[in-house]
Design a protein around this nucleic acid. Sequence first.
DNA 1: TTTAATTACCACCTTTCGGTGGAATATACA
DNA 2: TGTATATTCCACCGAAAGGTGGTAATTAAA
Lengths: 138, 138
Amino acid sequence: MHFRKTTEYAIRVMVFLAENAGKRFSVNALNKTLDIPYKYLGRLMNQLAQKGLVEVTQGKYGGYLVNADRLSEIYLYQIVDAVEGLQDYDRCILGFPQCSDENPCALHHLWMEQREAIKNMLYSNSLADLLKNNFSRR
Amino acid sequence: MHFRKTTEYAIRVMVFLAENAGKRFSVNALNKTLDIPYKYLGRLMNQLAQKGLVEVTQGKYGGYLVNADRLSEIYLYQIVDAVEGLQDYDRCILGFPQCSDENPCALHHLWMEQREAIKNMLYSNSLADLLKNNFSRR
DNA sequence: TTTAATTACCACCTTTCGGTGGAATATACA
DNA sequence: TGTATATTCCACCGAAAGGTGGTAATTAAA
C-alpha cells in the first residue's frame, strides 16, 4: 500500500514551495535541497506547471514558484491527481466489476472505509492547512 | 494509492479458498474461476504455500487448500506481507529520514493516521472475520 | 548582440512488476 | 509400471515506472 515515488516527489516539492511561497527556485536549486534526481525533477516540474499547480518562468533567473495567495486553493488531491490520477480510489480491491454497496465483496466495507478516509484527507487539506499544522481530519 | 496487482490477486485467491475451506483446487480450477493468469497464478500459489498460508499437495488430484480451522489464524497482514511486504507502512511520505512524532514533516500526523488505520485493518481481520461479514474496525 | 542560466522537448536507458513457455518432478490410480 | 494430471523450477518476455543525456528554445543582463 503506497503512493508512487513520483507522487511522493510531487508532494515533497509542493510542500517545499509552499513553505517558501513567493520565492522562485530553479530545478537545480530544488534538486540540491530536495534530493530528487535532477532530470526527473525537471520533467516533474514541467508537469506540475502544465497542470497549473506551480508558476513557471523560463530563461535566465527563471524557475518555479507557488504564490502565497494560492496556498489555500491547492489541495493534496490535485497534486496526486496531477501525477498518478485518482482512479485507484474507486476500484474493488478484489477486482470484481459488479462490486458495490448493494452487492459487496468480502472486503468491500472494510476497504471502502479506508479509501474514503484517505480521499477525505486528500480533499480536505490544502497546502495552507499543512503549513498551519492545522490538519483537517475530515 | 494502491496495492500491487499481485497483492490483489493474493487476497482474491485467499478469500476464495476461505469461502471454500477444506476443498482442494488446482491452479487450473482457480484460474478459471478467479480470472488470474494461469502461469502467474501458479507462481503465486507456490509462494503462498511456501509462506505457509495455504496447504499444497503435488501430483495428480493435487492442488491448494485452506483448512477451515485455520481461517481464524490467517490475517490480512500476512497475505500482504507474503507478497509485497509491510515496509511501506513505516516510511515518511516526504522521504525525510529524520521524520518522527517529535520531529514531524508537514504531513506526518495526517499520514500516520491513515497508515495506522490501514495497518489496524490488516492486523485485526482474519479470513474468518471476512467470511462472517463481521469486519473488525480496530 | 553575445553570453550564461534557465526551462522544454525528445529519445533512450534501467529496474521492477506482471506475465509466459517449457521441461522436470511428483503422485494417484488403472 | 505406465499414464494422466498436478506442482515446481528456470529462463525469458513485455510493459510501465523511474531515471539519464543531449540539444533547442527562452530570457536577463553585461
